[in-house]
Design a binder for these strands. Structure first.
Lengths: 232, 232
DNA sequence: CAATTTATCAATCCAAAGATGTACGCCAAT
DNA sequence: ATTGGCGTACATCTTTGGATTGATAAATTG
């Protein structure tokens, strides 16, 4: 992935000046790394990234001024080949999850040994993901929990299962914002037939109108390929 | 997590009888494992799980009869302390992602060395997640890609930003399935005022009716705490 | 201060949505 | 052969939704 440039070009962003200096010295000691910048400001850091296109960014995500997570997102939107490793003092599952979600390629704790940091940089530079075993477990716990609730609510008896195939077709078109005429046109049936189906759908889903039907469908795992979301 | 029982109790499910036998022999060789069952049928396997409550299930997820992924989900719904490790011939990112999502605590390839399998069992039994580095990378690639599209579409100019605070309130109530009367009642304003707001919302979101407005809101990151979903 | 935006309300009109009842051909299961 | 579910269709009626225009007061902003 990374083309040969001799040295890995690294940018450091950490609002703690002491820690920033420490990491910088540590990395500079490694002969094959080149620190192209080190700043305590996320905003300045992002500008430096636009300028220098570093290979790796070490980003502290616990900063007051600008949220480090937000910064990661901004960097990802630049669509460079820059890979971000999140630096944090906390092994909080939610933090890890959000950092990875926003595109971080690694997550390491400030308390970790310096050898770990070097290893992480090498791994990420090689195109891999670096997540220490303990953090990885936290991540997956969080990840799986966020779906467990979903599948639980899903089996609280899903009224969608009572729909006939045709009704599902109609509901699918409803969830795309179609009105009666639109659905009739797409299914080559009359508008009154659509009304019949829609009314049957209302009965089965125990709702009063199309908006509620659409919401029910969306909230109960109605096959909807267009959405793939998780709360931020 | 796991209480002391002397030996780890393991159940094997694999529709390939040869592979099943091979794995069984391999595991039986380990002195601290106890194979409590081995079957080529997912359905029988699930019944065995209900009966024996094994510590670990090795589940082949490429089976014709019953989808292994579905089986994982079924097992998770039992809410036992049984941990499932997915066995697969493929290192397909989507497969890995779905298996983990449904609650698998590990994922290993059939081509992997037997030592790996033993190691994975021990790790998972100890409460950890086992995902070989290569598969982990695939997982995260997939994971991050599924969010990338989202954030891209989110900044394609979000018409929601044009809404006033009041309009957002109204839209929020719309996304809960309220009609005019309901909204008017909840905001202590007249129904005609609500209509005005809703009409303004339509204009700003460039949609024709409430259903489309609700869909737009949901698909464009409208703060909606109730949904936290990913496509299956 | 003047201009603009926002929130509120009203009246009207037409279109769309929803409720209800009826009906008929098809097909699968009993 | 009969029953029942499904898909289709229509008519009728009521309610809700949506477009348009206009108006007023408060808040915001230049």
């Amino acid at each position: 992935m990374r083309e040969f440039r001799g040295k890995l070009r690294i940018l450091l962003i950490d609002d703690n000046a002491d820690h920033l200096r420490g990491v910088k010295e540590l990395i500079t000691l490694e002969s094959n790394y080149d620190v192209v910048g080190a700043t305590t400001s996320a905003n300045i850091g992002i500008n430096l990234i636009k300028k220098y296109h570093p290979d790796i960014v070490l980003m502290d995500i616990n900063m007051p001024e600008k949220d480090g997570l937000q910064a990661i997102q901004d960097i990802e939107k630049l669509n460079l080949n820059t890979r971000v490793i999140a630096l944090s003092g906390y092994d909080d599952a939610d933090l890890i999850f959000r950092a990875m979600k926003l595109g971080a390629k690694g997550y390491i704790l400030k308390t970790m040994a310096s050898a770990q940091l070097i290893y992480a940089i090498d791994e990420v530079a090689a195109g891999k993901i670096y997540l220490p075993s303990a953090l990885s477990s936290r991540f997956f716990d969080y990840f799986q929990r966020s779906f467990k609730e979903e599948s639980n609510s899903a089996d609280a008896e899903n009224l969608l299962t009572y729909l006939t195939a045709r009704e599902e077709e109609v509901l699918d078109l409803l969830t795309q914002g179609n009105n009666y005429k639109g659905i009739a046109g797409k299914l080559f049936i009359s508008e009154t037939t659509v009304k019949t189906h829609v009314n049957n759908i209302f009965q089965k889903l125990q709702v009063n109108d199309r908006t509620q039907a659409v919401l029910y469908a969306l909230n109960n795992g109605f096959a909807n390929k267009r959405r793939a979301k998780l709360a931020v």
